[in-house]
Design a protein around this nucleic acid. Sequence first.
DNA 1: TTCTGGCACTCGTGGCTGATGAGTGCCAGG
DNA 2: CCTGGCACTCATCAGCCACGAGTGCCAGAA
Lengths: 338, 338
Amino acid sequence: MLSERRLEVLRAIVQDYVGTEEPVGSKALTERHRLGVSPATVRNDMAVLEEEGFIHQPYTSAGRIPTDKGYRLFVDKLAGVKPLTAAERRAIQNFLDGAVDLDDVVARTVRLLAQLTRQVAVVQYPSLTRSTVRHVELLSLAPARVMLVLITDTGRVEQRLVDCPAPVGETVLADLRARLNSRVVSHRFSDVPSLVQDLAESFEHDDRPTVSTVLATLLETLVEETEERIMLGGTANLTRFNHDFPLTIRPVLEALEEQVVLLKLLGEVKDSGVTVRIGHENAHEGLSSTSVVAMGYGSGDEAVARLGVVGPTRMDYPGTMGAVRAVARYVGQILAES
Amino acid sequence: MLSERRLEVLRAIVQDYVGTEEPVGSKALTERHRLGVSPATVRNDMAVLEEEGFIHQPYTSAGRIPTDKGYRLFVDKLAGVKPLTAAERRAIQNFLDGAVDLDDVVARTVRLLAQLTRQVAVVQYPSLTRSTVRHVELLSLAPARVMLVLITDTGRVEQRLVDCPAPVGETVLADLRARLNSRVVSHRFSDVPSLVQDLAESFEHDDRPTVSTVLATLLETLVEETEERIMLGGTANLTRFNHDFPLTIRPVLEALEEQVVLLKLLGEVKDSGVTVRIGHENAHEGLSSTSVVAMGYGSGDEAVARLGVVGPTRMDYPGTMGAVRAVARYVGQILAES
DNA sequence: TTCTGGCACTCGTGGCTGATGAGTGCCAGG
DNA sequence: CCTGGCACTCATCAGCCACGAGTGCCAGAA
């Protein structure tokens, strides 16, 4: 096990490196931190830390840089979550309170996170399957054409066109609408399939094909939309450190454009509390020198979706974690109110 | 006026520069193009072109690169629009045909444009005010709470929550729904305000506050959503030329994140045909070394929105214009079908 | 044992230099 | 009006060197 002082040295290295973006040497360390020992001692500690894989030097006789493993230890043991200032909290609330609809909430959240952390922000739309049904609407657009509209408790709205096998009478439609709603409203979307399973059977024989078609589309929508939508923002922040790794920006941008990749990233997040994934812990290759700080958010206790930021492994973890946590909480609150 | 040959020289310079991304000199020009004259002559022509402001040299004794004015002349007079190959056309059609809803159409279009042009693609959602109303729906979510859903002929759906001053009876709601639809369906959204102006007056006195509230929200939605949504993609393509201007990528990314800026860019596009805006012709500062190639698209003859790409002024204009035009047409077709 | 000061060594960085060559402007002659 | 020739400019690049931050190791002190 590492001694107290060695941990202290690691913490100092991480802090200095995050601040200066340059490899940090033993002398500079003793000057900037009250470690109470000489540079030579620090050097010995560094040698041990390096042997254990927490730091490494880019080349002989340069300062040390934390490794992914080093950051991991730092995040887990050495640093807490830095709460936001009161002013920041107020700013968040003000900014989010102005939102008019779900799209707007998500858009504002992305901007907010990007500004607050000065990094790339990622916000997932509230998941359909984890939300509950507020209303199902059926609109007759043409004799044999129906529009299906799903409304969730989080304010999300999905719609699909349904081409029916035969013209649909208004009475049948009203009937279906009523029965459908009485069965599914206030239930979770994930339960909808079993709730509507035998619904077609209760209709007149002639109407069954139509009802089945509508229900099929409904279920299809649930499946398709399980792969969630994501909103991205603050990509310009990537250029803040491109002097350091100008070639790394490309794969990152590419990865960020792939919704699939992003969803996978967020998918690995625990449902409660801030999750941090550092460098190679993210399976995706292009993101091997970036970290993800993310958290679930929801209208109640349960997470309906996730949000977070993507930035260089060399980032201010305590501050970023604080911002992500605060924003996630407020967004949850906003959603609960609407 | 410039002689035929001088125009030919300018065309050659633009083509070579776009290909090599390096200043092009007189000797290289005569070797790569059949101009039929010697380098010395070309040098004289270049001197004239430079005096006229079509090209300039980054420093004494370097090759020439086109100026914005040079590109402008090239686009207007020297180059046509390069049609896509049959294979490319087929690819477009296949790719777009798989779309399930409007969001999907827009998302696919962005990807397609980005891939085809290898540049940043921008697609505007079909505008509300330019579309026609397919249906207006009113849903009662709670006694005094109504959801307003607007459906356009392009498949776009907008919804708003309305908090009514008093509980709304189902009959009133049905009545309002029917009258509203009979008035506005098949009309353009821009005409809706005048069409519903006196609608409240035809209701019972007690219901008027409610009706007015709903109508007010409807009009409000039209106004708000006039500032359109935009989808962006292919930002990773920015890094293709960052070796040239590594510092320029940042302001571009920043500009692209501002929906307002993008909308302004697209707003300057003619309704029909491909529009090209080169370098400083784009008012926005961060985009002074980028060009925008854009075009309106729509389900009928009229444009309901715009799409295009943003790339370095040094781009393959004929090819890009061809791609943008082709995609715009196919998207229009797809929308007309749905 | 643990810490410290000293010392020789490594190695990336940045400034300087000179050679190279692409490209130019100009001019006199076809 | 075009062409070949010529002197000139200047960015780029490789090579070189001095600098200095930072290291590892060791012997001696606490």
